[in-house]
Design a protein around this nucleic acid. Structure first.
Lengths: 257, 257
DNA sequence: CGTGACCTTTGATGTGGATCAACGGCGAGA
DNA sequence: TCTCGCCGTTGATCCACATCAAAGGTCACG
């Protein structure tokens, strides 16, 4: 058995992502509470799942799902983060979401992939064949109910992002993003605003941020600088942000009048 | 039995919409092929469904799902079209999709509605309670597989729209929209480009178009005029458009280099 | 057939964010 | 420690689209 074929241990977070952002999930290392399918699965079910996948390790910045290519596999991320995006021929890029440990990728593609996925750091993931994942669903119909829930949550997030991209100003986009990122990291007290004065890890380059928010890196940088000038955030270093006044950020994000 | 409680005849198109645009579907009048759940349902199943809904008739321009309100009901549209949208407090609006006969609405909302829905013309629809729709799912698990398929298609459409809103120019947005609308109306030869020189009904105001594409009505009007000037489309009247050169439109929409 | 309300189109002007350009900070590698 | 390359920041300028304004078009209604 080669390393590529090593059986996956599925007793790890198994949240679902169906092409996009998904329910919050963290890797074994971080200690945070996990969400997703694993909550619903028995040991037997986990064992069954584990017989259907291959484990792979990918270096940083490798594109393992390419838009337009035949959709052969489904992936479950074990560690590391990936960006999901669509591109235009002239190089313009729109990041449609980020996927971290526990997310599923590729389920939305019927025939050809409709988006690309690229690792942002070294990534470990499990690969399912089409028939493998179908067998999993046949065996555990409960998965489908769960998946449907997550897919519908994805639709809600997609609508939020459409409002952001279609109608919000640069500053509103940045404020909205900071709050939604805090929510994704479960830094919000019971679904409300994030707690202030806590350093929030932000493992995204300015380029990623710009391509996610439909802006340029210069505008992203300027908007962050303005929020810093106005005392709403602090930027101790490039990969951390401290939210000083979450309520003020929320007022900007939602264009409170 | 009041008219509101009249039993629905579910022997009509029953495609699914989960908050957004959905798989193509047309009403009984139009004669086009229908997609969706009805393909998968027996007469018994349709009968079961019919006992779970109320039928309602709404006038034009009535908002029957309001963002932020408690999510009590699910709806299945029988006739007429509705717009789905999110708003900001200052009145900016983003239409996230349109739903026509056969579409389901409200499934994505867990607690509060995350979007609003407004009729664009007089609309007949069926209303399900939360427990009613749950019973339907318990009775016919096949529905869930179908719903999952449709939800995933919705995610794909959502990603397309994010690319449009985040990275495309006004002209590219209009061209993309015209092609996707033709696709929705099933005017495309086997999933390819729409047939040229056929009048395409376009029952949207310029305002709706602008709010869907993240533009202003003036920019929409100017872009359509330019396409007309360049000989790519004709506009016989405000509610019809003829695509003269679909390939050229596609080149613009996809920013072919 | 006239009136008025509303929508669309077109033109003139304004502006938010893109583009172009220069500089600075930081980590890798010799 | 120096240098190089890559990012991120900041400033100057530009431009695509928004905003402001006005003139048709269309349709309902008396």
């Amino acid at each position: 058995m080669t390393s590529l074929n090593k059986i996956t241990d599925f007793r790890r977070p198994l949240a679902i992502n169906l092409a996009n952002r998904a329910a919050p999930s963290n890797c074994d290392d971080c200690g945070a509470r996990h969400h997703g399918l694993c909550d619903a699965l028995s040991d037997d079910e986990l064992g069954f799942l584990s017989r259907a996948a291959q484990r792979l390790t990918l270096p940083a910045n490798s594109v393992f799902i390419e838009e337009g290519e035949p959709a052969q596999y489904f992936y479950n991320i074990n560690s590391g983060n990936v960006r999901l995006f669509k591109s235009l021929p002239d190089g313009r890029r729109q990041i449609t979401g980020f996927a971290g440990p526990g997310y599923f990728l590729g389920l939305a593609s019927k025939d050809k992939n409709t988006f690309s996925a690229e690792t942002m750091e070294p990534v470990k993931l499990c690969r399912f064949t089409r028939s493998g994942i179908a067998a999993v669903f046949d065996e555990f119909p409960v998965l489908e109910r769960k998946l449907l829930d997550v897919a519908m949550h994805e639709l809600v997030l997609g609508q939020q992002q459409m409002l952001l991209l279609g109608r919000k100003t640069a500053l509103e986009r940045i404020a909205s993003f900071l709050l939604s990122w805090a929510e994704r990291l479960e830094m919000c007290a019971s679904g409300r605003l994030p707690r202030p004065n806590v350093a929030m890890p932000l493992p995204l380059s300015r380029t990623d941020l710009a391509d996610y928010l439909g802006l340029t890196i210069e505008t992203v940088s300027r908007s962050l600088s303005q929020l810093k000038r106005d005392g709403l955030i602090e930027i101790p270093n490039i990969h951390e942000i401290v939210l000083l006044r979450p309520q003020a950020l929320s007022d900007i994000a939602e264009a409170a009048v």
